[in-house]
Amino acid sequence: MTTALDRPARTHLPRTVAFAGISAAMVAILVAAGAPTPLWPIYQHEWGFPSWLLTLAFGVYALALLVAILVIGSLSDHIGRRPLMIASLALELVAMLVFLFAPGIGWLIVARVIQGVATGAASSSLSAAVVELAPEKHKKLGAMMTSMAPLAGLGIGALFAGVLAEFASEPAFAVWLVLVVVMAAGTVFTLFTPETVSRKPGALASLKPQVTLPVQVRGLFASALPGIISSFFFMTLFLGLIPVVLVAVFKVHSPVVGSLAAFVAFAAGTALSATTSGIKPQRLRLAGTSAMTVGAILFVASIGMHSLTLLWAASLIAGAGIGASFAGATRGLVPEVAPHQRAGIFTAIYLAGYLAMGLSAIIAGVVIGIVGVASTAIGFGVITALVALTGVIVTNRR
């Protein structure tokens, strides 16, 4: 039987060019995920819908992404990286078009669901392709790209959309038009990338959701779980809740300011992830959960004292904590299992994280409609602080 690698070669880009392009596509997917952050208040002002619908739109994205990871996560191992990369980027393009022409909040929610599925489908295939296409002498570069891209992409996406929205006459249209062009270019580029794995049977069976956590790391995973959950709580906070808080509590309507909290947080997280390879995983987790505890307390204080300075400090400290905690969790768990068990580790991490993100966003939306934005934000910050503090205690005891 002829495999994808055995077929006559078509016109393909050199592997180094393909590596750079697929790395850029991976970042672009995350840029698009962070782009709505400063746009939500603009949509709310123009269309006059309640704040809880914004958090709902954020929550359904996380849940759709989670379902896609569980169902499609290992499909590229069977059908090849290229077909799934092309399909996911094309679906992301569809989501950008729905955003571009959305006439109301209902269509924004539809776009977020499509985007969640596309991002989930892309996460495994693009990440694997980046590692496999990395130059032989620089294989660590591929692994570094996959670990840095999520936080970096989300932060860049929020800042990019905020700056463009600040100066464009039609902010949302300008942001989505740029991303339509980017996703179209990424889809076309992927058509010419080389395949990196052979096809193998079992594609349909791989669609059955499975989460297998090796016995030898279950205790370690349990101790890392509070840090993972609090990291994703903060992602909900920075991407979904803070833009609403800035308008309702601080009366800040600037899209750039609305995007800065997310950018500062994710830039700090990216920097920590990139510069701490020599630190032991347990120390990273302890430092990360400690920083997130402090960041959550500062966030609550910023609401109570109406202090933007404290809000930026909370973003910086909590963002560093996200990067340290997540890096410590993955670096501690992955070396403890065999190569064929690593997919199960990441699936378990993302299952816990995105479930926490999606449910917390939806619950926050319900609570906003009852007690208001300020009280919801304070409650969210207190719960996040308690979860992160649990991580400090559990990690220190272990």
Rank of each mutant, 00 (worst) to 15 (best):
T2S: 10
A4F: 12
A9Y: 08
P14V: 05
R15Y: 02
G21F: 12
S23Q: 03
Y43R: 09
E46F: 10
A64K: 10
L66K: 15
V67Q: 01
R82S: 11
E92G: 15
F99L: 00
A102P: 00
I105R: 02
G106Q: 01
L108N: 00
V113T: 05
G116N: 00
T119F: 02
A122H: 03
A128K: 00
M145I: 15
P150N: 02
P150Q: 02
L154R: 02
F173K: 08
A174N: 01
L177Y: 00
L179I: 02
M183Q: 06
A185V: 00
G186P: 02
L191Y: 09
E195C: 04
S198R: 15
R199G: 13
R199F: 08
K200V: 11
P201I: 09
L204K: 04
L207I: 05
K208Q: 10
K208D: 00
Q210W: 06
Q216R: 03
A224I: 00
A224S: 11
P226K: 02
I229P: 08
S230P: 05
F233S: 05
F233W: 11
T236D: 08
P243H: 02
V249T: 13
V252K: 13
V252A: 14
G258S: 13
F263C: 14
V264P: 05
F266K: 03
A267S: 14
T270G: 07
T270N: 10
A271Q: 06
L272D: 03
A274F: 11
K280G: 13
P281W: 01
L284S: 04
R285N: 11
S290V: 08
T293G: 00
G295V: 07
F299W: 03
I303M: 03
G304S: 09
T309A: 14
L311I: 07
W312I: 12
I322Y: 14
G323P: 11
S325I: 05
G332H: 02
H340S: 13
L351C: 15
A352Q: 07
A352F: 07
Y354G: 14
M357Y: 14
I378P: 11
F380K: 04
G381N: 01
L386Y: 00
L386P: 04
V392D: 04
